[in-house]
Design a binder for these strands. Structure first.
Lengths: 347, 347
DNA sequence: CACGGCCCGGAGAGCGCTCTCCCACGCGTG
DNA sequence: CACGCGTGGGAGAGCGCTCTCCGGGCCGTG
C-alpha cells in the first residue's frame, strides 16, 4: 500500500505472502540452516509468485562480499592517445581467450567479472578504489608491460589479486604462468628435428619475463643441440614488429632456414616478409610461432606453434583469486602450466 | 575500539575525525548541498587521513543505482560445447572494438561494465536476475544471432537496455546501428568504378538483418549501375565460411573479377582461396571486405573495406543506455552511423 | 515424571550509506 | 523590535538484507 506497485518485491513481501518471518525466507534462499520441508515449499511458491530477486547491494552490505571481481588489463597508455591502449589489447585474440577462460570458470561460481583498463594513473586509482569500496572482491590482472606498478600497490593495500604471468620485479603475489622455457625448448627441438641448421629467433620485448624465458629456453635448447649461437631480433609482440624483425634478420643472415617467433602475431608478420622475399615455407624456411592463437590458423601455410593453454590458465587464475577472497590470509601461490607443440604446415 | 583496526573506515569515522556529522561528510563527498568552505577543507583532510572510500553497496542500497551496467554477449551456444561460444566471440576482434568503445565512454561517467555471456537458457536467466537484483542498472546487448529472445524479455521486464544492431524481429527497444545499405553501396560503387564487370558477393547469415541489408544495398547499387544480377553465396561471418563460399562462387562463375564479402573475416578466407587458384589480387579479382577490423590489415594484399565506426557506435550505445537509466520512461531511440570506404591494396 | 539437549522459527539489531526534516543563526524588512 | 526568510549543520529514519540470539516444542534419558 505504501509501497508503489512498481517497486521490486523484498524479502519482507515474500515473508508476508508465505506467512513466515524474513529470517526463514532468507534461510531457504541461502540454504543456511535446516528448514522444514513444507515451509520450504511454501516459501518457494511465494518467491515464484512475487517474482522476488534478492537485492545484491543489501546482501553485500552485510556479507561484505560483492560477488564480482575486477578483470583488469593494465599497461602503459601511450600518452596523448587516449583509447589506443584499450583498443589494442581488446582486439588481441589473446585477451579474448583470457576473458573466455575467466568467464567460463567464474560463471560456475556465480561470480561476475567487471572489465577495467588501467593504462593511466587515474585509471589505476580507479581500480584501487573500486576494490577498496568493496565493489569487487579481488582483481585478476593481465599486465602487458614490465614496469606495471599495480601489482605492488595491490599487495600493499592487502587486496586479493592474482596475476596472469609472473611480475617483472618480484612481488609477493599469486600468479599463473606458462613454462615458457619448456615451450621454447619444444620449438627448438622441433626445428632441429626438421634438420634446420641456421635458425634465428624473433623475441618479444625483453623487459617482459615471458620474452626472456622464451629466449633463454630457446638458446639453451639450441646449445644442447650443438648450436651455441642463435641470432636474435627483438620485436614488440605485434605483427608489424615481426615484419621489421624478419627483414633485419633476413638482411643479416640470408642463409637462415628456421625461425622461431615468440608469438603468433610476430610469426605472421615474419611469414609475410619471408614470402615477399620468395622464400617458400616450410621448404626454404621453417617457421614456428607461440601461443596458438587465431592468427596461427588464418595464415597460409598454417602456423606450427607452441600452444599455451590460455583458457585453462585464466580459469586457474580465477580459482586462485576466489581462494584468496575466501581465505584472506592465504600465502601467495603460483601455478605453472605446461605448453605443447602444435605441428601444422609452416615447419 | 569496538571496530577492529583492519576494518575500512566508514563515514562515521571520517565524521568523528572531522568533528562534524555524518550528513555533512556525505554532503561534501557528493556535493549535494552548500557546505561552508572551512568545513569542507576539514572534511577533506579527514578523508585523506583516514583513507576513506565510500562503500558502494551501502550507497546503492539507498540510491538504487549500482554504477555498473551489464555488457552482454548473447548468442546460441552450440549444445554440448560448453565454452565454445564465449571463446569464439571474444576472439573476434569485432567484439574487442565494441568493448573498447564501451569502456572508453563509460569511464568518463564513472560506470563500470560487467561482462556476461548469454548463450544458454540458464545464462540468460542469470543476466535477467542480475539486472533485477539491481546489480547492474541496465544492459548493453551485443547479439550474434537472429532468434535471440533476450531483447524481448528485457523489454518485458522493463529493464533499461540498448542493442548493438537492430533486432531481427521488431521489439520496442533502443539500438545503435550502421547504415549497412549505404556501406554496401560504397563497395558496389567502388568495384564498378574499378571497371569490374563480373562481380559476386559473399553474404553473412541471411537471418541477420545486417546481412540482409548489406546484400540488398549491394544489389540495389549494382542494379543502378546496370548489373541486375549478382551471384551470391551465403557465409557465416567466419574465415572458414568465406573460403567455402569463395570456392563455390569460383566454380560457378570462373570469370568473376570482383568480390564483395560482407565482413573482413570472410574476405580473408576468400582471399586465400583466390590466391590458391592463382588469381592475382587486385589485378585479376578486386576484393572488398566490410568492418575494417584487424584481419583487413594483416592480409596481403591489405584489404579494401567498408569501415564501420564500431568504437563510436559502442560509445553511442553506452550513452543511450545511461540516458535510459536516468530517465526510466524514455521512449526507444535508434542512432544510425555512417560507414566509409577505406581503399587499400585488394581492389 | 523431571530435566537437559536439539531442532527450527521469530524477533531484532545493525551493515554504511542518503536524504528528509528540523533547528539555530544571521540578516533584511515593516 | 518583531517577524520572515535564507543558509547551513545535525538528528535520525530507513534502504533490504544477514545473522545472532532467544524461545517453544519435542525428543531421549535417568
Amino acid at each position: 500500500m505504501s509501497r508503489p506497485p512498481t517497486a521490486p518485491p523484498t524479502l519482507e513481501d515474500v515473508a508476508r505472502v508465505a506467512g513466515v518471518s524474513r529470517a526463514t525466507v532468507s534461510r531457504v534462499i541461502n540454504g543456511t540452516r535446516n528448514v522444514d520441508r513444507k515451509i520450504q515449499e511454501v516459501v518457494r511458491a511465494a518467491i515464484a509468485k512475487t517474482g522476488y530477486a534478492p537485492n545484491r547491494a543489501a546482501r553485500s552490505l552485510v556479507t561484505k562480499r560483492s560477488g564480482t571481481v575486477a578483470l583488469v588489463v593494465s599497461g602503459a597508455g601511450d600518452p596523448g592517445e587516449e583509447d589506443t591502449f584499450a583498443a589494442r589489447v581488446f582486439s588481441d585474440p589473446f585477451f579474448g581467450r583470457v576473458a573466455s577462460g575467466v568467464l567460463g570458470f567464474l560463471r560456475t561460481r556465480g561470480v561476475h567479472p567487471v572489465l577495467m583498463v588501467a593504462d593511466t594513473e587515474p585509471a589505476r586509482e580507479d581500480v584501487l578504489s573500486f576494490l577498496r569500496q568493496g565493489s569487487a572482491d579481488g582483481a585478476l590482472l593481465v599486465s602487458t608491460h614490465a614496469e606495471d606498478p599495480l601489482p605492488a600497490r595491490l599487495v600493499q593495500a592487502e587486496l586479493p589479486a592474482v596475476l596472469f604471468a609472473r611480475p617483472a620485479r618480484p612481488v609477493p603475489i599469486s600468479y599463473v604462468d606458462l613454462d615458457h622455457q619448456a615451450g621454447a625448448k619444444l620449438a627448438a627441438d622441433h626445428l632441429v628435428h626438421r634438420g634446420r641448421k641456421h635458425v634465428v629467433t624473433i623475441t618479444g620485448p625483453l623487459d617482459v619475463p615471458a620474452s626472456q624465458d622464451r629466449l633463454t629456453g630457446f638458446r639453451d635448447a639450441m646449445a644442447r643441440h650443438g648450436f651455441p649461437y642463435v641470432p636474435i631480433a627483438e620485436g614488440g609482440f605485434t605483427s608489424a614488429s615481426g615484419e621489421v624483425a624478419m627483414e633485419r634478420l633476413l638482411a643479416e643472415h640470408p642463409d637462415l632456414d628456421g625461425v622461431f617467433a615468440a608469438n603468433d602475431l610476430m610469426a605472421q608478420g615474419a611469414l609475410l616478409v619471408l614470402q615477399k622475399h620468395g622464400r617458400r615455407i616450410p621448404d626454404d624456411v621453417a617457421l614456428v610461432g607461440f601461443d596458438d592463437s587465431s592468427p596461427a590458423l588464418s595464415c597460409r601455410p598454417r602456423l606450427t606453434t607452441v600452444r599455451q593453454p590460455v583458457e585453462d590458465m585464466a580459469a586457474g587464475m580465477s580459482r586462485l583469486l576466489l581462494d584468496h577472497v575466501e581465505e584472506p590470509g592465504l600465502r601467495p601461490k603460483s601455478v605453472i602450466f605446461e605448453p605443447s607443440l602444435v605441428v601444422r604446415d609452416s615447419s
